[in-house]
Design a binder for these strands. Structure first.
Length: 274
DNA sequence: AACACGCCCTGCGCGC
DNA sequence: TGCGCGCAGGGCGTGT
């Protein structure tokens, strides 16, 4: 799944739900990342007021609740599928007949409902309150990025960790972290405090470039990611390094290597990325 | 206190 | 054709 661009695409496609009223909800009863913390009666007759995305969460604002959906690794939201799909874990039917199905084989995703109060914005919810800055927000400037680096430069972090950890800049997962590092010509193992500060301008630009390009291309559809209408994105056709170990670097023709960092695969060109 | 690692799951592709 | 292994977009909880 689903890094920031993919969730952003889903959010746009789910805007059609605004104004619709929930009629009933089906639960598979199988445990997702957390057990459901609400029942059908809690959200019956709730109107979807507005959709948001924060990090990799979809947020549906209703009259009384913030409904948070996270897709984990293999979650899909699909509108208006008639049949019950394998691994469908919940399905919301609206009063006009529209349905929203959540399908997730690995069940690393979640749906949670949080009571809204007048002063509780979704950003303050437990699952969201420790997240870093949104990279596509206007607050994310080069100056701000360097500020975040300066606050954290004494930590013993590799550039890959710094990119992927949601407490600094959120929404960048394993695929796009690898691609951003390639474009920036930086090795994923490079320690953040050994990078020339001027390099941060290039990293900053590549974060924006790659995330925006991914959104423009409808996201990456490798195995599970599908749009709410079942169609695929095409960003996977433009990867320079992710999943290309053993193949040739598109720039220098040398081998792309795969290494493990903190349990995740990193792909990089040892010649281009220092 | 910071960091590495296991674990939550199913499914797929690979080598034998 | 079948079996076992390793691996997969995430991220929380545990142990050192």
């Amino acid at each position: 799944m689903p890094e920031l661009p993919e969730v952003e695409i889903l959010k746009h496609q789910l805007v059609v739900l605004e104004g619709k009223i929930i009629n009933n909800v089906f639960f598979s009863g199988k445990k997702l990342k957390f057990m459901y913390n609400f029942k059908e009666k809690d959200i019956k007759n709730e109107e979807i007021l507005k959709l948001y995305r924060r990090n990799k969460y979809l947020i549906l604002q209703t009259n009384k609740y913030w409904l948070l959906i996270h897709l984990g690794m293999t979650g899909q939201v699909i509108l208006n599928v008639e049949e019950q799909k394998k691994h469908e874990h919940f399905k919301i039917t609206f009063k006009d007949g529209t349905t929203l199905s959540y399908i997730d084989p690995r069940r690393f995703g979640l749906i949670m409902a949080y009571k809204r109060t007048e002063y509780l914005e979704y950003c303050a919810l437990d699952l969201l309150k420790n997240l870093g800055i949104e990279p596509l927000s206007k607050e994310f400037t080069l100056k701000k990025y360097i500020e975040i680096f300066n606050i954290n430069k004494t930590k013993n972090l590799t550039m890959k960790q710094f990119l992927m950890d949601n407490q600094y800049v959120c929404g960048i997962g394993n695929i796009y972290a690898n691609e951003i590092l390639f474009m920036s010509k930086i090795s994923p193992t490079k320690k953040i405090n050994t990078i020339n500060i001027k390099k941060y301008e290039s990293i900053y630009q590549n974060i924006l470039t790659i995330l925006n390009k991914a959104i423009l291309l409808g996201g990456s559809s490798i195995s599970d990611f599908k749009h709410t209408n079942g169609l695929s994105g095409s960003m996977q056709n433009f990867y320079n390094v992710y999943g290309r170990d053993g193949e040739n670097c598109k720039v220098c023709n040398n081998n792309i290597f795969r290494i493990k960092q903190n349990g995740r695969s990193s792909f990089y060109c040892k010649k281009c990325q220092k």
